[in-house]
C-alpha cells in the first residue's frame, strides 16, 4: 500500500508493459508493421479476413472454452449485426436503408447481436453438451432459411449490397490499410477483453460453472444467469465481427450465414485451440490461408476434404488444437533440456 504512494510516475507505464508481456509486444509490432510489407490482397483477404473470422471463433471459444457451451450459432449473431448495418445504414438494394450514421448503426448492431445471442443462450442453457450443439445448429439453419425467404426485411436470396465502411475524419476505411487497422483494433480489443476478463470474478465464475455447475449452485451462484450473461458478451464480439464482415464483403446475403459458415467458425476454433484466446486467431490464419491457396492447388471439390482431413489430424494429435501442439512441443523441449543437463 505504502509502496504505491512512493512509486515514481514512470513505474506504472513500465508495469503495464511488463504485464502485457514480451510475446504480445512482439506480436503487436509484427501486426502493426504488416502493411509495410504486404500487398493489398494480403492485407485484406488474408489479414483482415483472418482477424474477422478469428473474432467469430473467439466468440465461440469464449462460450466453449470458458463456459463449456459449444454454439454453432455465432455466425447467425454476426448476421444479425450485418443485417442491422444494411437495414439502418445505407445500401444499394433500394429496400429499407434508413441511412443512419455509422456511429449510431454500429452500437445498434452490437446491441441486437448481443441480445439475440443472450436470448438463444437463455433457451439453450437448459441443455448440455450435444443438445446445445443441436439447438444452436437448428437456430443457425432456421436463421438462414428465414432471411432467404423474407423479402420485406432481409431482401431474401440476394440480400443487401452496397454496404460500405465509413469515412471518418477523412480516413476512408474502405481502403486496404485503414480497413486492416480497423480490424486489428477490433480484434485486439476483443482478444484483450477476453484475456483480461478470464481472470475477473465473472470469468472465474464462468469457468467454475463449466467445471462443476452443481457446486456453483451450492455456494450460492445463479448458474443460468451467469451463462446467459456469457452469451451476451459472446454476442457482442460476434456482432463486432459481423459489422466488419459486411464492410469487408460490401454485402450480406443468406450465403454469409449459411450452415457451412457456421461450421467454418467451429472448425477454426477447434483447429486453433480453445484453451487460450489466441487460439481462434491462429486457427483463422490457418484456415484462411488454406482456403485461399489450397483451392488453387487441389481444386474446390477436394478442398473441403482437405480441410476435413486437416481438422481430423489436429483433433487426433492434439485435442487442444494448434495451441496444444505448441504446448506439447514446449514441454518436450523442456524435458530435453533437463535431460541434457543431467
Amino acid at each position: 500500500m505504502n509502496a504505491d504512494v512512493t512509486q515514481n510516475p514512470a513505474t506504472p507505464a513500465r508495469n503495464l508493459l511488463a504485464r502485457i508481456g514480451t510475446g504480445h509486444l512482439v506480436l503487436a509490432a509484427l501486426l502493426l508493421a504488416y502493411p509495410l510489407v504486404s500487398s493489398d490482397f494480403f492485407l485484406t483477404q488474408i489479414g483482415g479476413y483472418s482477424l474477422i473470422f478469428g473474432m467469430l471463433a473467439l466468440s465461440l471459444s469464449l462460450l466453449a472454452g470458458y463456459g463449456g457451451m459449444v454454439s454453432l450459432a455465432q455466425i447467425s449473431f454476426a448476421g444479425v449485426a450485418g443485417y442491422t448495418v444494411a437495414i439502418f445504414g445505407e445500401n444499394n438494394s433500394n429496400i429499407l436503408g434508413f441511412g443512419w450514421p455509422w456511429w449510431l448503426v454500429m452500437p445498434l448492431a452490437l446491441f441486437f447481436a448481443a441480445t439475440s445471442s443472450a436470448l438463444i443462450g437463455w433457451v439453450s442453457v437448459r441443455t448440455e453438451g450435444i443438445y446445445t450443439i443441436m439447438i444452436t445448429l437448428a437456430v443457425a439453419t432456421a436463421a438462414f432459411y428465414f432471411v432467404r425467404q423474407n423479402y420485406t426485411l432481409f431482401n431474401g436470396f440476394p440480400g443487401y449490397t452496397g454496404l460500405r465502411a465509413p469515412i471518418v475524419f477523412g480516413v476512408n476505411f474502405r481502403d486496404p490499410v485503414p480497413f486492416y487497422y480497423m480490424c486489428l483494433v477490433a480484434a485486439t480489443l476483443s482478444y484483450a477483453a477476453v484475456l483480461y476478463a478470464a481472470r475477473s470474478t465473472f470469468g472465474l465464475t464462468l469457468q467454475a460453472i463449466r467445471d462443476n455447475p452443481r457446486r456453483m449452485r451450492a455456494i450460492g451462484f445463479d448458474v443460468t444467469a451467469h451463462k446467459v450473461v456469457a452469451w451476451f458478451y459472446a454476442g457482442l464480439i460476434a456482432g463486432l465481427a459481423g459489422v466488419l464482415l459486411v464492410w469487408f464483403n460490401g454485402r450480406i446475403s443468406p450465403g454469409t450465414i449459411n450452415v457451412a459458415a457456421a461450421i467454418n467458425v467451429l472448425i477454426i476454433a477447434v483447429i486453433g485451440g480453445l484453451k487460450h484466446p489466441i487460439g481462434p486467431f491462429v486457427g483463422a490464419v490457418m484456415v484462411v490461408l488454406m482456403q485461399t491457396f489450397a483451392i488453387d492447388i487441389v481444386g474446390a471439390e477436394r478442398f473441403n476434404t482437405l480441410i476435413g482431413v486437416f481438422f481430423l489430424a489436429i483433433v487426433f494429435f492434439s485435442p487442444d488444437g494448434i495451441l496444444g501442439l505448441w504446448g506439447q512441443l514446449r514441454q518436450r523441449l523442456a524435458q530435453e533440456d533437463l535431460r541434457s543437463r543431467q
Binding site: 483480461y196 476478463a197 481472470r199 475477473s200 470474478t201 465464475t205 456453483m216 450460492g220 451462484f221
Partner: peptide, 18 residues
Amino acid sequence: IYLACRGVSRKRYSLIRP
C-alpha cells in the same frame, strides 16, 4: 476458495480482476 467466499457477496458479475 475465492469463489466459495464470493458466492454470498455482491458484484458477482464483475469484469474486474479481484
